[in-house]
């Protein structure tokens, strides 16, 4: 294990133990929780533009679908969070597939605009279907996440009103999504997506059914967005249609771009950086007497500059498709044993 890796593990461990420190600030825990919600979204969105090379401008639509699914199921049926997460994911995937199947045949530009229209329709629906969503008034009184372990011990029934348990729930979800992303990236599925991104015609000639794999990507991406929404609903305990406007899609896209399209760890860093920047800018802008929305000027500029000067994002592609997979490590050894000049294999490994 090298120094860089140990350092990352150390930072992750420090962040994870922070809420247990008695002097920990609620505000920082809150910001970290928010950053982790965006980590889920950024990882999920990354599948579509990052792995498949398609611009998705309506990601917030799936986030909203997940959030309202969770909120309504909680209020009307009192379902447990642990049941709701898979249901929200399924609902997200369903809408992703319904939207993707007819529109992913089209060129990327059309797809981008369709996703945008879709997310605007979601907001309009949430605003206007008052019988279901209470419209602009929002959906208050969503129960917090509960953990029912009474089957183990009668006293073990927990309600997560506090910031700390929520922090750990979302950390768990981030870990889960990260795990799934890494496994997908280094698999037949991930390779098919990369092929589509690099050259659709060559991908088809390799036997990849392009439309199918794009729809799968879009549905999985939507499902992850919906999981993020489901947590958000139970964490904030209040939802309103305003939370799911285009700005959010843009922000998540900006995180993905900043971290490098197709780079999973980059998306995590992008989320941390932009959430922190957002907090800082909110302070700075209000002290300058500017409206808080104007922070998006910075985000817009970041995106333009990155596309111009560092299209691969700020962080080098840390892993190109599962270098740490035992199969590849084994192959590398075998190649080295063939007496190939050392430089060549080392070049390849970096």
């Amino acid at each position: 294990m090298n120094i860089g890796k140990s350092l990352i593990l150390l930072v992750v461990a420090a962040v994870l133990t922070y809420p247990l420190v008695p002097q920990s600030s609620d505000y920082i825990i809150h910001v970290m929780t928010l950053a982790m919600v965006y980590m889920i979204l950024a990882m999920g969105l990354n599948i579509v533009p990052g792995f498949c090379g398609l611009l998705d401008l309506g990601y917030v639509g799936f986030y909203g679908i997940g959030a309202y699914t969770a909120g309504l199921l909680t209020i009307h049926y009192g379902l447990s969070f642990w049941v709701i997460v898979p249901l929200a994911a399924l609902n997200g995937a369903l809408w992703g597939a319904l939207l993707g199947a007819p529109t992913l045949r089209l060129t990327g530009d059309y797809f981008a605009i369709v996703t945008f229209g879709f997310s605007e329709l979601v907001v309009l629906f949430l605003t206007n279907e008052i019988w279901l969503t209470r419209g602009p008034l929002g959906l208050p009184g969503i129960q917090p996440i509960t953990l029912n372990l009474t089957w183990l011990n009668d006293a073990w029934y927990f309600e997560f009103y506090d910031k700390t348990p929520n922090f750990y729930v979302v950390a768990l979800l981030v870990g889960l999504v990260f795990f799934i992303m890494r496994r997908m990236e280094d698999s037949r599925l991930g390779r098919a997506w990369y092929a589509i991104r690099e050259d659709p015609l060559a991908a088809a000639s390799c036997g990849v059914n392009i439309l199918n794999y794009k729809v799968i990507a879009f549905a999985i991406s939507a499902a992850i967005g919906a999981v993020g929404g489901a947590f958000y609903a139970r964490w904030s305990m209040f939802l309103s249609p305003d939370m799911f406007k285009f700005w959010e899609s843009f922000l998540v896209l900006c995180m993905v771009v900043l971290g490098g399209l197709g780079n999973i760890k980059g998306a995590l860093l992008g989320a941390v950086i932009l959430v922190s920047l957002g907090e800082v800018l909110r302070e700075v802008l209000s002290s300058l007497g500017l409206p808080p929305e104007s922070r998006f000027m910075a985000y817009g500029l970041i995106m333009v500059l990155i596309m111009r000067f560092k299209p691969a994002g700020f962080f080098p592609a840390i892993a190109s498709s599962g270098r740490s997979n035992p199969l590849l490590i084994d192959l590398q050894k075998r190649l080295a044993a063939r007496n190939v000049p050392k430089e060549e294999t080392r070049d390849a490994a970096t």
Binding site: P49, G53, S294, M297, G300, M303, V304, M307
Partner: peptide
């Protein structure tokens, strides 16, 4: 000469940027 995705993202970025310049 860049991939189309890069140009599209730039277009979105410019749109948001200009909008917020006007806002300021």
């Amino acid at each position: 000469k860049a991939p189309r995705l890069a140009a599209l993202i730039t277009a979105i970025g410019m749109s948001i940027f200009l909008q917020n310049v006007a806002l300021m």
